[in-house]
Design a protein around this nucleic acid. Sequence first.
DNA 1: GAGTTTGAAACT
DNA 2: CAGTTTCAAACTC
Length: 971
Amino acid sequence: MDSPEPSSKITATINNTLSSDPVPAQDSPVFNYISNLSPIQPVKGAPIVQDFSGLNSPPLLLTSPRINTHSRSSLLKRSQFPKLSTEVFSGRNEDYNNAITDSDGTGVFFSPLRSGLSPFVQKVSDNNISVHEQSGTPIRCVDEFLVDVSNSESGNPSNSNNTSPKVSDSIPQSPNSAEDSKVSVVNIASKDERKDEIQEDAARVVVEQAEEDNKGKFPSNQKYTGVYSTSDPDLPSPGFCTKIVPGLAAHSSLHYHYGDQQMAQLSTAGHTMLDEASNIPIKSLGTAHDCRDDSVKISTMSIAPDEGIVQHDSQTKASQHQSGISRRCLQFEDAQQKMAPASSSSQNASGIVSCSIQPVSPAVIEVVEPVSSNRSSIASNKQLTQLVSSSVNSESLNVKVSKPSGIGLHLNSIVNGMEAGSGVTVSVKSTQRGNLSIRGKKLTSMMSCHPSKNLKNCLISSNVVGSNLTSGDNDGKHESYGSDAESVAASLSLNNAKPLNDSVLLKPTEHTPSNKRKFNSEHIDSNMDYNQSSPQKKRQKTSDGNDGDGCKRCNCKKTKCLKLYCDCFAAGVYCVDSCTCQGCFNRPEYEDTVLDVRQQIQSRNPLAFAPKIVQHSTSSPAIILGEGGASFTPSSARHKRGCNCKKSMCLKKYCECYQANVGCSSGCRCEGCKNVFGPKEEYGIDLVNKHSITERLERSVEEEVEMVTATSGLLQSGPINQCNSTPLTPSFRRSNVDASKSWFTSGRYLSSPDSGQANTAPYGLSPGSPRNSNNHDIHQETTGDMLDLVTFDHELNYGNAKLANEISPGFHVSGNMDDILALPKSQDWASNSGGQLIPQTVHFQSTDPLIWHNSPMTHMTQFDGSGMNTLELLDSDKKPYVMEDDTPAILKDSSIPQIGVKVNSPNKKRVSPPYRHLNEIGSSSSGGGLKTGRKFILRAVPSFPPLSPCIQSKYVAAHSTNNSEKDSSRK
DNA sequence: GAGTTTGAAACT
DNA sequence: CAGTTTCAAACTC
């Protein structure tokens, strides 16, 4: 995309890329920030770059220097294969390819971080630490990063903790890593040479259009090995998909950009930072030092940065995993847009990790798994895992909405995220068990998009995140944030993360050389075999085409996975073992080729790799009930180009809009659109009478009012139970869950990238950074995120009370709620947002995570209606549960989702303001025009399941017109 | 698992 | 830009 030169000239591009790559890192604000913080000044990866040049350096391919780095990173990334790296490091895996891949992957993967584009946020809450995670590619704004730091309770803002902590956290602590790394380095070097050759071949191929003829050119040796080899039985098989990687990833990434030394320094600094800030002891420090050494060596060897990364990774299995992951993942350049620094670790015992994920980048969010060993922590409160999610901290969060430019979420990410919940990042904390069950549900639900597998995946991912989920501990918390890409991606993270066990399945057996890919037809065959080796792989594929992990899998036969036909390629990720593609060139080994092809495609269509799903700023997040499990996407999200469905009525996955869980838009050329997520406008509102809709809403509202009253009673008595107890129809529950998920995601979506700051505030509320909640500023800024925060709060141990306090203070709901929740600080919110509505939701949430299930997210947006009304409704009515069933029904209506948004909008476009607006409003809200209050309410509502969707819907219906007007006025 | 359908991507 | 072909996923049986 960015590359000035067309892809046609591979060699030139390669050279360019080599030279250019390092620069971006420096440029990145993150880098600067880090450099400032760390005693050692990060040096650009220049040396690294050189090294890479010879090798596959991923970045090289990218044309624009800045972009290049990003592009590389952006290109691919599938978080995957945690294990691979381990093997590589251990030296077990002798395949240089693997090593390379791992290294590359990491390098690629992380590069964005440095650039600031992809932030990994790691926060470690645990003293012991076990966990580290990284958000894979979430993009955070640098601002966020910085903010987080400042915000971090423990840490001094001055400390560059954010970055460093991430790194440090990420760094696994295996003592042996140094040695291993060295070995791996050597291997890598040798491999690099080969790789270069291979890449050259690939380039040729690309030039030639990567035709089959070229296949023969590739060295047979180069079979794709992969990442996958898993010598260790213990380790999960190298799955492809994202896996949770411990902080290592961060290191690797840093190295990649900055250089190993710098990285090491950073990592160390980060450790210290973390320690100080979070009081969490970090084991990794020692490793970090080792890493330095390794890194240095590596640099001298002129090994690609990736390799360097690998070395570090080698230190710990986790690190290895990361590397493997990184290797797989290609980050699109687009992803660069954002980053979010990790929010500083929260002081909570649970330690919240915040990862910002950027929706923008197609890159999949990867969840880093703390390495395992440490994980005993299950029981311990400590750990948490972060999944990609946006940073929890209020301030830190910058939610960036996928920018138009950007490549927002890649479709994959979105899809994965959405469906699998991958979009949402999840952080699990071990904080409270009480919440755990719920949390777990959420995750599952979130993940559940793919019904069959998701749970597993979720569990797995959760595992990654924290053994908690899997373990069934309730401790884990989830936090998920949507990202546009957000979903991003994040979304990917969870999904991507595979359970170790699964990974085995996924993985092809081994990577004997024979298994490695061959470009020749034979190779193809071998590939097939290879792929097939894991019979399950394919079938694991969810309907979505995602593996259980949420990873894309393809079955390309003729395109060599170098065309957009290939989902993996299109998604900017490398194919994985589980793919059944033939003659696949979309492998790390052929990175250059891949990049070249990408460039070519981009030259034709600059947006070819841009996320297909773009969030419309105008729309508010609406909850949409998916057919199967409702999936939520921000209502605003729409397919970039729109679909062209003729026969599927946009009700099947043939429809890209449907597949992405987004409604059709005016841009769609579909015929007879019945997209459940939002039919094409003409169909949507037009088809359905607004009146009928409004009537429904009103009815539902009334019902909800009754429900609310009933619930209020419940709340007093035990709202939680009710929420939980409230029998939701299965579909409804899903919707709720999804909604919650979507909600998170939506939150991210909402926050406009531009608004970066605004988003942060909500996080402040987040349990992770409860302290932050105190800050009014934050709240103000983060109106949009509030909901997310709230949800998070649920998850968080902090009890509901805090949340309620922070969030709900304004809550109009009755004093009853207050009693229950005890909202100390309600004023803040109230003043700010007039967050009346929100408070309600908050209450519910706070009270019970379970409640969460009940509330449908979609309504949130609709809630615009003044919170006052809601309150009144609540007070007035007292009928119990009717709501549940009703709401689902309402939600289920295809029309519903749009109703709130579209009904009143003159343009038929969604009226609800984007996050930005919310944020802005929120900031201003203290002054509190109704507008602001409403806005808050809208989002808040969705976030809080407790409030019956019906109510929200009512408000929406009632105020929809007003809202639209408001929105327009705002704009 | 094979075959069909579908719509995007690629091509003309 | 429109039409056609190619492709691979989604779907059906």
